[in-house]
Design a binder for these strands. Structure first.
Lengths: 204, 204, 204, 204
DNA sequence: TCCTAACCGAGACGGTACGTCGCGTCTTAGG
DNA sequence: CCTAAGACGCGACGTACCGTCTCGGTTAGGA
């Protein structure tokens, strides 16, 4: 993982440098197994064996299975750091932002991963920080830009509680995926976006 | 769930009957440990020992730690099947409904439990069903009544998508608790309820 | 088992009498399973189920699995209390005595049983007593008669240590069967009997 | 047996080498407990705890409690590979050979162990092989040398069936110890040896 | 004809030990 | 200093039997 694994060293590093091929193999193996069977059904031994690496090497660079999973997932997702869309309409911006992400989220593989991350985060605050920094905050920042543009354009109220609004927008998708009481359909996306738009609309 | 399903027996029961005292002791022990340390940090051995029961007895009636936790939690919560409040105002009804529940949810103990339940549900659909039936659906039904009364009173649009609206209402609270990016304050509750009210308001 | 299960009662027995059919079913089930798989690979639950009896009933009448096995074996063997043979020749008497018994002993089923009995006897003196009384002493008594007749006839020395001689005669067969280093063949029987005869022959 | 089989490795050994101290600790712990209480009254957990080792480590190297017991016993007994005695007299050689061994055998600890070994051997041929190779054959080989010297010296018949004679010699001691119908006294040893000598004496 | 003791089956119980699995660490030899 | 291999201590798992203990129901003799 970017932030953690690359400490700054003033003096040049001595000894054998970290094996990049090993790192890639571990991330690849973890990624495959994660999507195949979910993070609770795989073992570090298994990842090590499939990667042709040793467990010690994994633990040297990733403190836990979930953190490895996080990194594997992150490395696997295309590096597309989408600029938040700017269609000129708040509703369309939100749809453009939510749709591709919600599609990804609605696959069983991702649901299992997110659930495992959340579970781990309850007992390991450090992990929670890491998880939020990489998978939650970036998305919120994108939406925040959209919200702020909408405020500037006067599409939504200027005293919008943006933090709460972000929760209002994102939470329903997590909710359906994690609790599984209903499907995350495109209709649902549109409905929720519609409700959010009306909830934040400026006072008449 | 096994323990709660009490099928009617036409034929007389044979063999030694299930020990009610043992069942209670196990549920009590599990409940205590669960709230103390969370479901991932306790062992079945420990529950068995504290309950003065044998592990075999636990496994005879509860197939997994999570199902036991579910049952323990359910048996522990007072059997109060609150009628959904009827204050005459949609917003006040929602607040009356959400506030006590959100307070309970925002304790660390419950967050850990819910996270563990959700995680387990991803890999065990049967468990998911059980979890939703006992902890999710009842709450949704209460809110549904409130929504329908509001429709009758004309406070919210008659073509409200109630399922989506339920998600819009409940999801943000789960979201904050599970992801931990912000506190679940009373301000937050009021803000979300306000947004929901405006989102569902009848067209002008 | 005869001696244990039929206590003398002065006053007539009250209450429901012991179920003979149950007793037979248990002995039969135990006997079958014993010969099929050996006493270490069967459980009391299994015997109870096959017999259509309850475990409590078994334990009411037989204190342990081995004792039950002993009884099952005993009841299964034909009640033939052979008179020790009297052919007029010491060697022929011994052969007539040993041959049928050794044949039976040399089946794998019996070896497993005897081994289990011996093993149990090490830790349970009461069981050892029972075992010897039913399976060891009767055979020794038969041979003792043969020995004594041979002494009378002058075929063997009058100061023969009969106890030691009985061990000299029987032990080699147990030995081969239990240790399994060589087969218990008819040749072997003849050889051992021959050696015993010569060992005990009167001084020249 | 795993632990004793030290195959030659052409390729250099990879990975962490087996811990010799752990092996010794396990064997020592097993040995002590075995002699204290017999193999049926000890648990692997107990051995592991006393040895400061983990159960997994024990099971990695010894497939069963009995095999561990065998190894522990073997490692415990002094490595004295006594040359068979050569006193010039067959009877004295036998006595010199049997006496110390019979003394050891006649302690309760050894009787329990031997009985357990024999019992296990009935259901596990591989174990039986191991047991005989380490505890039965070596003794027979020593006696065989004594027998062959006696044949050369003309003390016993040249057509002696040595295998049967070995059984005739050793079996009675096992017999008394395992069946427990009589004590293994020095008188008994002398009597049996005397009988064996006379049984094998050359024809007049 | 009841009463009551002793039996019976079914099957749940507390308990002990089992053998396995996964974790995260450590110890080798080798690059 | 890194790596692969793989053994290690630890702790929990879920299972198998043990021998005991209720249950409701059955079968006798004695009252």
């Amino acid at each position: 993982m970017t932030a953690r694994a690359e400490p700054v060293h003033d003096e040049p590093r001595r000894g054998r440098p970290r094996s990049e091929s090993s790192r890639q193999a571990i991330l690849a193996a973890a990624g495959e197994l994660l999507l195949e069977r979910g993070p609770n059904s795989i073992s570090m031994d298994e990842v090590a064996e499939r990667a042709g690496a040793s467990k010690a090497t994994i633990y040297r660079w990733w403190p836990s299975k979930e953190l490895l999973a996080l990194d594997a997932l992150y490395n696997q997702s295309e590096p597309s750091q989408h600029e938040p869309p700017d269609t000129g309409s708040f509703a369309k911006d939100l749809l453009a932002l939510i749709r591709p992400w919600a599609r990804q989220l609605s696959t069983a593989s991702y649901a299992r991963l997110v659930a495992a991350f959340i579970s781990r985060a309850q007992n390991d605050p450090e992990f929670g920080e890491e998880y939020r920094a990489h998978f939650v905050k970036p998305r919120r920042e994108q939406a925040r830009v959209v919200f702020e543009r909408a405020i500037e354009r006067g599409e939504i109220s200027s005293d919008t509680d943006v933090e709460a609004a972000l929760d209002l927008l994102y939470a329903p998708f997590y909710h359906r995926v994690l609790h599984g009481h209903a499907k995350l359909t495109d209709d649902f996306i549109q409905t929720i976006v519609g409700y959010v738009v009306r909830a934040l609309a400026p006072a008449r």
